[in-house]
Design a protein around this nucleic acid. Structure first.
Lengths: 347, 347
DNA sequence: ACGCACTCCGTAAACGTTTACGAATGGTGG
DNA sequence: CCACCATTCGTAAACGTTTACGGAGTGCGT
């Protein structure tokens, strides 16, 4: 099947009519339309995307840019795999397709995105792993490509983003720990480049101050957000002169490495050290003692993300009129055994 | 920047010359070319992909079809994230871009692929999670789209594929365990639909027969290849009347759930039960006792996959003349503590 | 002075769609 | 019988690019 021309020839109809029939335009006879659709089905005709895009200036494709960095591989982050289902559930309603654009680890994300955008391969973009200052946001704004960022950014003053409720998590984690008598609460954070670390720490700090607990920089453990990082975090924790009684992990998976290092030194999570995790990583559910952790539905997050994006695309705006421009995604605490003790209480 | 026409106008050159200059065609003056390239750079011009594809019938894009099923999310499989780096390292040399096509979980993979192929959005495809009988292979063959399958298939008699060395792993695992005195060796496998399970089991069976050990179907544990599945596998293992002394896991991550369930019953891996894993999942490296596991380089696998694909594309065939059509990818054993004991030996 | 080769560039067609426009037909009301 | 509308379809232009073809200019050998 070469193209619409062949199909039209076969049916002895003009290509214009065939096109209209296939695209559900009004001015075509019902019988004719039936014949066209039947023939297209039989011959397996599907419109060539290049021709269509060229003509109407849109591709019906949404791009999701991800990074295949070594760290991402190490983390084996299922975040986007989960989010994608939610995204697709929304996109499918509008016959939009989602493709993932993995930025090569040796290419500058900004340059990569620039290339992809200029090629006009997608109508809109979702970018992730947003940095505090992220030139990709300016790029997309200037190019007038609808987009949504996963993760807030200072560049994104008035552009749409969705982000996890880091403040709420840090806040509630600190409150919960303090209520159980903890005073020395450690926290992990990634390098300050990444935006989420900043917000997370800030909220942690304010929560402490509310309870007149001085912020102690030595309790901020800067490690990678991976199991390896968790292992290292535990290591550094154990080296501290005045050992904390609790630790908040910015990434759930870190608990696996952390537990291991603690066990090696005979420190038992949930008895000698309270541990609270964050985000969603199914595999950490098998830890013992079970991890207290803030979790969420990746599917729902994806669906919200999809709606937000469509609300920013001229062609779909009216379908999603009241979509919020920014969302701080709430998380729910799944209580576990890892922080189920009072400080000073007899065991 | 609208298009090549604007650029040509700006430079007061015809669009033909501009196109030739940008594409490195020979018949254009050096000075002219310099000017064109400079102007393109300055104005941020990049050729519209739709126009280009339409004209030359190719997109310079390779598609990698993945599945975002619930199981995939649960596994949080880093397999493709790792493989992608290797793929891109090869593709980058030919200015090819890789996009990932996530098949919605509620759509038939075959129909999805059909849609994507018909749209002519990619020049070639990599398909994964190949089933024993996989109609996608016929589809691609008939459509004459170059492709490589990750995972062998009976449909793919003479089409290119790459697969892990399941035979070798099962074989060596059994040999290793038998050498340490094991006679009752359990093995996990996914539902028989998936091709890899079939091959894995078959090799396991043959290895046993070589040592005159009768194949016992009750020792084949059919569970999902996830942590959850590992937990369940351990559970079923413990219920067996005559408990095996060793178990081979088809997926490394299962060890995490398996360990947990074993521990709950006071059964210690590496002392009461030997455990050997398979494939690459960095997070399982933190298990204690450490897991004996067959591993590989995802990057190298990706690079080989990329070369194999290019060797099957007319435009690049001559660059990779001696690329094998089928590869069984070898894995190396990383010895750990989980199988470091002799059956019957005093502890 | 002429032919020839070579370099550089402009012209125009082609890729496969969609869609604005208008033509043809049939029906209806006056 | 005419004017008018509705329905249905064909025609042709347009989207942005690449490329075959040929023309203009220059240099060189005869």
């Amino acid at each position: 099947m070469k193209g619409i021309r062949q199909l039209a020839e076969q049916l002895d109809i003009s290509i214009g009519t065939v096109s209209r029939a296939l695209n559900g335009k009004p001015d075509v006879n019902d019988e004719t339309r039936r014949r066209v659709l039947a023939a297209a089905e039989e011959l397996g005709y599907v419109a060539n995307q290049s021709g269509r895009s060229l003509r109407q200036g849109e591709t019906k494709v949404i791009g999701l840019m991800i990074e295949s960095s070594a760290e991402a591989v190490e983390n084996a982050d299922n975040f986007f795999l989960g989010v994608i289902s939610g995204l697709q559930s929304v996109f499918a309603r509008h016959k939009l397709d989602l493709i993932m654009l993995p930025c090569p680890s040796d290419e500058d994300p900004h340059e990569y995105l620039k290339r992809m955008v200029a090629r006009r391969i997608v109508d809109a973009m979702i970018i992730s792993n947003t940095q505090r200052i992220d030139r990709r946001i300016d790029l997309l704004s200037r190019a007038k490509i609808p987009f949504v960022a996963v993760g807030r950014s200072v560049s994104a003053s008035n552009s749409p983003w969705i982000d996890l409720d880091f403040e709420g998590v840090a806040d509630r984690a600190v409150e919960r720990l303090i209520a159980r008598g903890h005073r020395r609460i450690a926290i992990t954070a990634p390098s300050s480049e990444v935006n989420l670390g900043y917000v997370f720490l800030d909220s942690y700090r304010r929560a402490l101050e509310r309870h007149d607990i001085a912020f102690d920089p030595s309790l901020v453990i800067r490690v990678r957000s991976s199991e390896q990082g968790g292992y290292q975090a535990a290591h550094e924790l154990l080296l501290l002169e005045e050992r904390p009684t609790a630790v908040i992990l910015i990434y759930e998976l870190m608990a696996i490495g952390l537990y291991r290092r603690l066990m090696e030194s005979g420190v038992i999570p949930g008895r000698d050290l309270a541990v609270i995790g964050f985000r969603d990583a199914p595999r950490a559910q098998f830890l013992q003692p079970s991890l207290s952790c803030f979790r969420m539905s990746l599917y729902d997050l994806g669906a919200a993300l999809g709606r937000m994006l469509l609300a920013n695309m001229p062609a779909y705006r009216e379908v999603y009129p009241d979509e919020a421009c920014n969302i701080i995604w709430p998380l729910e605490l799944t209580p576990g055994e890892s922080d189920a003790f009072q400080v000073g209480a007899m065991v």
